[in-house]
Amino acid sequence: MPSPFENTSTLSRTLLSDQAYDLVRKSILEGTLPPGARIVESELARQLGVSQAPVREAVKRLVHEGLVISLPRRGSYVREISEGEAGEAREVRGLLEEAAARQAVLNFDAAARSHLEELVDGMREAAVSGDLAAFRGFDMGFHRSVVELSGNSYLPRLWAVMEPSLLGLRIVGDPGFPGDWTEMAESHQRLVEVLADGNRARAAAAFLNHATGVEA
């Protein structure tokens, strides 16, 4: 299997852990390092041209985020996806976004629309270029922004707890999604329009359906 880091130049000597973290995380989010893949710190360090210490720190951060699991005496692996766990995460995400959207309608203004549409534009560009890691970043940012727009101080805290799991379980922007990524971006533009309509019940239903997969 070819290394996902073959074309990576040697990292600079500053902030090595952050750079190693960004590169490994990007490979996981893009699916280059697939679920179940073993992460061998010494091999990654060699490929990245750094010592093993910054890679070890990067892996610890990824474990904390839920993207990697570390098993005693067995090593570290990209987290595999359980259908049951993914279903539970979708259910909780749906409830959270349903509540957030209902409140976000009350705070939706021109600035909020502009911000969300910038994120949708980012998704469109990432879809065209095939940059799935960037797509997932814009996708996650979109939903995080709606949760923050709710004005409920507890909902963003709950989202922050869930976000690593949503990424790790590929609940948001699944690299294995077989459909049209451009259409996926457009589905978010439709969510913007629903918020702009000002109907709280309709917005809540739209975000619940989107989160649980009723709408792609």
Results as ranks from 00 to 15, higher is better:
residue 1 M to Y: 12
residue 3 S to Y: 07
residue 7 N to M: 09
residue 13 R to S: 10
residue 16 L to I: 00
residue 16 L to F: 03
residue 19 Q to I: 01
residue 24 V to S: 04
residue 27 S to T: 11
residue 32 T to L: 11
residue 32 T to C: 14
residue 32 T to E: 15
residue 32 T to W: 11
residue 35 P to N: 13
residue 44 L to Q: 14
residue 57 E to H: 08
residue 58 A to E: 07
residue 64 H to W: 02
residue 68 V to G: 02
residue 69 I to R: 04
residue 71 L to A: 00
residue 73 R to A: 03
residue 75 G to Q: 12
residue 82 S to H: 05
residue 94 G to V: 05
residue 96 L to P: 02
residue 100 A to M: 09
residue 101 A to T: 13
residue 102 R to I: 03
residue 102 R to E: 14
residue 104 A to K: 06
residue 107 N to Q: 04
residue 113 R to D: 05
residue 114 S to M: 02
residue 116 L to D: 00
residue 117 E to L: 15
residue 124 R to H: 04
residue 124 R to T: 00
residue 128 V to C: 03
residue 139 D to W: 12
residue 142 F to R: 01
residue 148 E to D: 15
residue 148 E to W: 07
residue 155 L to S: 12
residue 156 P to V: 01
residue 159 W to H: 12
residue 165 S to G: 05
residue 167 L to C: 06
residue 169 L to T: 13
residue 173 G to D: 11
residue 177 F to I: 08
residue 184 M to D: 07
residue 189 Q to P: 00
residue 190 R to E: 15
residue 193 E to Q: 14
residue 193 E to S: 15
residue 195 L to T: 13
residue 202 R to L: 10
residue 209 N to C: 14
residue 210 H to W: 11
residue 211 A to Y: 06
residue 211 A to D: 08
residue 212 T to L: 10
residue 214 V to R: 15
